[in-house]
Design a protein around this nucleic acid. Structure first.
Lengths: 123, 123
DNA sequence: TGCGAAACTGGCCGGGTGGCCAGGACCAGG
DNA sequence: CCTGGTCCTGGCCACCCGGCCAGTTTCGCA
């Protein structure tokens, strides 16, 4: 190990809500063993809280659409997706079409990006 | 406000390193005003620390490749990228080809996914 | 019992994509 | 001076993609 195991753990904050950020700063600042990171300092861990108001609701995707979406995110072609799921290429295109609709995407790349942004899939 | 401002802040942990997770659990568990989330419980904030060993180094992309990559992530076609950057479609395909190489991707969708995973771009 | 939603399949086709070939211009370093 | 890297362009071509048309089955719900 390179670090003394009694060393302080450096934490950085990444909080949208200013009030919550203040409270956490005050609370964590007094904990021995923990130190808040200076601006730009490399931290061992980060406390994050994204504003929940910015994701109104998740989109209603069918199970099959989620299957197709997951494989799309892996870079699979329609043919590969078809083989993987044991269905025809036409059916894959059908589901991809629905996905493009529901995600307002202009193509599969855009669809994956939108889905990732909305937390529908994890990259 | 809907919450009492003296209420405990619920924190969840998402730490790769088991040793660090243990230390944080011990330290944060004794802080009044903060409570650690039960498994599956909705938390006000999350403490994250991704394993740094899993990202050895970032990939060397040229400026032009980054330009193309950013537009790809927006779902732009080669033609749209060409117009946007004021270059020919052939040149765009050239850069896309380099991107596929450097990111070990099999297609533009895969390239965007890989780039996002490695933090090269932000979705 | 009918009716819609979801899943699945087919054909067709214009345009997009990616791989291959070839070339030229510019600039820093050996 | 010559080599190598980056950026740029062109043509060619097989394949893929997405949108359009059409149809089937199965399921739950009214």
């Amino acid at each position: 190990m390179s670090g003394d195991n009694t060393a302080e753990i450096v934490l950085s904050l990444d909080i949208d809500d200013p009030a919550l950020a203040d409270r956490l700063t005050a609370l964590l600042g007094n904990v021995s063993g923990i130190r808040l990171a200076a601006p730009g300092e490399q931290a061992a861990a980060t406390v994050v809280a994204r504003d929940p108001r910015s994701m109104p609701e998740d989109i209603a995707l069918t199970q099959r659409e989620l299957d197709v979406l997951a494989l799309m995110a892996e870079g699979a072609s329609n043919k590969m997706i078809a083989r993987q799921l044991g269905i025809s290429v036409h059916t894959v295109k059908f589901h991809v079409g629905s996905l493009l609709d529901k995600l307002d995407a202009t193509g599969r790349t855009d669809a994956v990006a939108h889905a990732a942004r909305r937390g529908v899939i994890e990259l």
